[in-house]
Computed example of a mutant assay.
Amino acid sequence: MSNAATQAVPEPVGRERVAAAAASLGIDVELVQRPAARSLHEAAELLGIEPAEIVKTIVVKRRSGDYLFALVPGGRKISWPPFRTLLGVNKLAMPDAETAFRATGYERGTITVLGATSALPVYADERILRRGGRISIGAGEHGWSAFVDAAAYLAAIGAVTADLTEPEDPQS
């Protein structure tokens, strides 16, 4: 047996996992390399889109110890009281970066439902679906963004949509 034959094939990482997961779900995904951004508005400008078209995938922990994904449009944040009511729980928290990595296989800033190492329930703010069209999501790897059709993505990942967010800046 040759040495090459005995070496393990590396697991796909980052954007490769995202692309493979999207293909398995029948979702068209466009992966775009981009420079690092210091803010949501800078990221949107670099990608040529509006901030609300960037959808953050946030890992949330329930008191019971299990996790879920919350999909939040740019410029908004989770509104905890209605989210807890929807889930029928009285406590939710955002885990630290290492815990989020263990739950998803992705580092913060790259997290996406596509190719995550755990199949977690997904809750999406209804504004994502209402807005429709293409959205940018994490691509599983720093320096990359993934673009998907919002409706096709939410349907394929089985997202529950609800009013989950509020403006990040209450003055806007």
Score class of each variant (00 low, 15 high):
73 P>D: 01
85 T>A: 11
169 D>F: 09
127 R>S: 14
113 V>N: 09
140 G>N: 08
41 H>N: 08
165 T>A: 13
17 R>I: 03
66 D>E: 14
166 E>S: 13
27 I>M: 13
145 S>W: 11
64 S>G: 02
77 K>M: 07
170 P>C: 09
90 N>T: 10
32 V>W: 13
116 A>D: 07
105 G>H: 01
97 A>T: 02
94 M>E: 08
71 L>H: 12
90 N>V: 10
104 T>L: 07
19 A>N: 09
45 E>T: 15
41 H>R: 05
18 V>C: 13
80 W>H: 00
89 V>E: 12
139 A>Q: 11
145 S>E: 10
49 I>T: 03
75 G>F: 13
19 A>I: 12
124 A>P: 06
69 F>K: 03
162 A>G: 06
106 Y>M: 10
92 L>E: 04
42 E>H: 03
58 I>S: 02
157 I>E: 09
58 I>L: 15
37 A>D: 07
74 G>R: 06
39 S>T: 11
1 M>R: 13
19 A>V: 08
131 R>I: 12
1 M>T: 09
81 P>D: 04
95 P>T: 03
159 A>D: 09
8 A>K: 12
163 D>E: 15
171 Q>P: 00
110 T>D: 01
128 I>P: 06
43 A>T: 06
30 E>L: 14
99 T>D: 07
128 I>V: 15
85 T>E: 03
11 E>M: 05
47 L>I: 09
11 E>C: 01
109 G>N: 05
150 A>L: 10
139 A>G: 14
89 V>R: 08
90 N>W: 03
170 P>K: 07
15 R>T: 02
163 D>C: 07
141 E>A: 14
60 V>K: 14
9 V>G: 02
167 P>G: 04
12 P>Q: 06
